[in-house]
Amino acid sequence: MQAKFKKSYRFATKTSFYITIYITLLMSVFLYYYFELIWWMPFVFFVTTYIFSFLLIQYRVERFIYRRVKKIYDDLTLLESASLTKGAITTDMRTLTQEIDKFARDKKIEIETLKVREKYRKEFLGNVSHELKTPLFTVQGYILTLLDGAMDNKNLREKYLERASKGIDRLGYIIKDLDMITKLEVGDLSLNIETFDIVELVKNVFDMLEMKASRRSITLTFDMNYTKPILVKADKERIQQVLMNLIVNSLKYGRDKGTTEVSIENLIKNKVIVRVTDNGEGIEKVHLSRLFERFYRVDKSGSRKEGGSGLGLSIVKHIIEAHDEKIYVESEFGVGSEFSFTLEKAK
Rank of each mutant, 00 (worst) to 15 (best):
K4N: 00
K14I: 14
I19G: 03
T20Y: 09
T24R: 04
V29M: 10
F35L: 01
I38P: 00
F45C: 07
F46C: 06
F46R: 11
T49Y: 11
I51L: 12
S53M: 13
S53Y: 10
I57E: 04
V61S: 13
F64P: 08
K71T: 07
D74C: 00
D75S: 10
D75M: 12
L76S: 09
L78P: 02
S81Y: 07
L84E: 10
T85W: 03
T90H: 03
T97M: 05
Q98W: 03
R105I: 04
D106M: 01
K107D: 02
E110G: 05
I111N: 11
E112H: 15
Y120K: 08
K122H: 06
E123W: 12
E123K: 11
G126N: 12
N127K: 02
T134H: 05
P135V: 04
L136N: 04
T138D: 08
V139Y: 07
L146F: 09
M151N: 09
N155W: 04
K159S: 07
G167D: 00
D169I: 08
G172S: 14
I174N: 10
I175Q: 09
M180R: 03
M180G: 03
I181H: 02
T182I: 07
K183V: 02
E185Y: 08
N192E: 15
I193V: 11
L201G: 02
L209R: 11
L209I: 00
E210N: 01
K212F: 05
S214G: 01
S214E: 10
Y226M: 06
K228L: 08
L231R: 15
K233A: 06
A234S: 09
D235I: 09
K236T: 01
E237R: 14
R238L: 13
M244P: 01
G254A: 00
I264S: 11
K269V: 07
K271V: 01
V272T: 14
V272K: 15
I273Q: 08
V276A: 11
N279T: 06
E281D: 04
E281R: 14
E281I: 12
E281A: 13
I283D: 04
K285Q: 14
S289W: 01
L291V: 07
F292V: 12
R297Y: 10
S301I: 05
S303A: 14
R304E: 05
K305Y: 09
G308C: 09
G312K: 14
I327T: 06
Y328H: 09
V329Q: 10
S331Y: 12
V335G: 01
E344Y: 15
